[in-house]
């Protein structure tokens, strides 16, 4: 007996958890990056961004507002690319796999990091393009600028929206039974979000997915002298302001940062729908805390 035991081949080394997750991350990332959809969508977004140029007579701030929604095709592409591997996890073979579901889910999410890098690169492209064309226009004379640039806080929203796109793709991919049903669902969700003027009212914008600044706030009555307003106010009036009198186009970095917090909460809540049962409650709790903090913060910042 001991002779047999002595002659037995040594047991194969069991790879550590980190190595298994690493291998899965590499395989899933390769698959996601081979998917042509996010690349085609990136091209559409980049082309859309290229078409945004301020023109004389434009609606005050329209070119500034148009810069964020051009990212929507890219976000749709990211959601589709992430939804495919998460939908694959619904197959019967997956529960019998030797790697725990939590690790497989984690690996798929880590594999989506290059797609997040894509959104960061797109945000960088937007920043470069705005400087290249000499800035965008906000406001009307006498309160007007032709050199408006999106702040870091506003550009960071594109990256956080990339995270929401990953989470949305993961949630729908995991929960929707047929892959083909994801196409209209993701399309409608992202393109309704891009109709930003529906969510631009100060009372609604904290809950929006894509927050597009500037917000329009009341500045004074029609009889007010616009030169008497603070010099840094970007003004609008009829027919570009429906409130009557003078309004001001307001851009706030603090609002954008708090909106990022809200979006992080939203992403955590969406991820909880894709995450296996152990750990789901933690994600829900974190999501609720961040979302509430984000909404309260935004309401606190808006004058």
């Amino acid at each position: 007996m001991s002779t047999v035991a002595a002659g037995r081949a040594p047991a194969p080394a069991v790879p550590s958890g980190a190595r298994v997750v690493g291998a899965l991350v590499r395989a899933e990332a390769r698959r996601m990056l081979r998917n042509p959809v996010p690349w085609l969508c990136l091209a559409v977004s980049a082309w859309g961004m290229w078409l945004v140029v301020p023109e004389p007579g434009e609606w005050p701030g329209s070119s500034y507002e148009a810069m964020n929604p051009v990212a929507v095709p890219l976000l749709l592409g990211i959601s589709v690319a992430v939804a495919v591997p998460f939908h694959r996890a619904r197959h019967e073979v997956a529960p019998a796999a030797p790697v725990a579901e939590t690790r497989r889910t984690l690996a798929r999410l880590l594999a989506a990091l290059p797609l997040l890098a894509l959104t960061a690169a797109f945000a960088g492209l937007v920043a470069w393009r705005e400087r290249d064309i000499g800035g965008l226009w906000i406001g009307m004379e006498p309160g007007r600028t032709t050199e408006a640039l999106h702040s870091t806080a506003e550009l960071s929203q594109l990256v956080v929206l990339g995270l929401v796109a990953v989470a949305l793709g993961a949630a729908l991919g995991r929960r929707v039974s047929r892959l083909v049903a994801l196409v209209p669902a993701l399309f409608v969700l992202w393109f309704v979000v891009s109709v930003y003027w529906l969510f631009g009212h100060p009372a609604v914008t904290p809950y929006s997915v894509m927050q597009v600044q500037p917000l329009v706030l009341e500045a004074g009555p029609a009889t007010a002298d616009p030169l008497a307003f603070p010099a840094d106010w970007l003004l609008v009036t009829a027919p570009h302001y429906s409130g009557g009198g003078w309004g001001r186009q307001w851009v706030s970095q603090a609002l954008a940062w708090w909106h990022d917090v809200w979006l992080l909460g939203l992403a955590a809540l969406l991820l909880s729908a894709a995450w296996p049962r152990p750990g789901r409650r933690v994600l829900i709790a974190v999501g609720v805390v961040l979302a509430v903090a984000g909404v309260v913060g935004q309401h606190w910042v808006i004058p």
Binding site: V176, R178, A181, P184, A185, V188
Partner: peptide, 8 residues
């Protein structure tokens, strides 16, 4: 499958 359409 009606749910995706209803959600939409």
């Amino acid at each position: 499958r009606w749910r995706p359409g209803l959600a939409l």
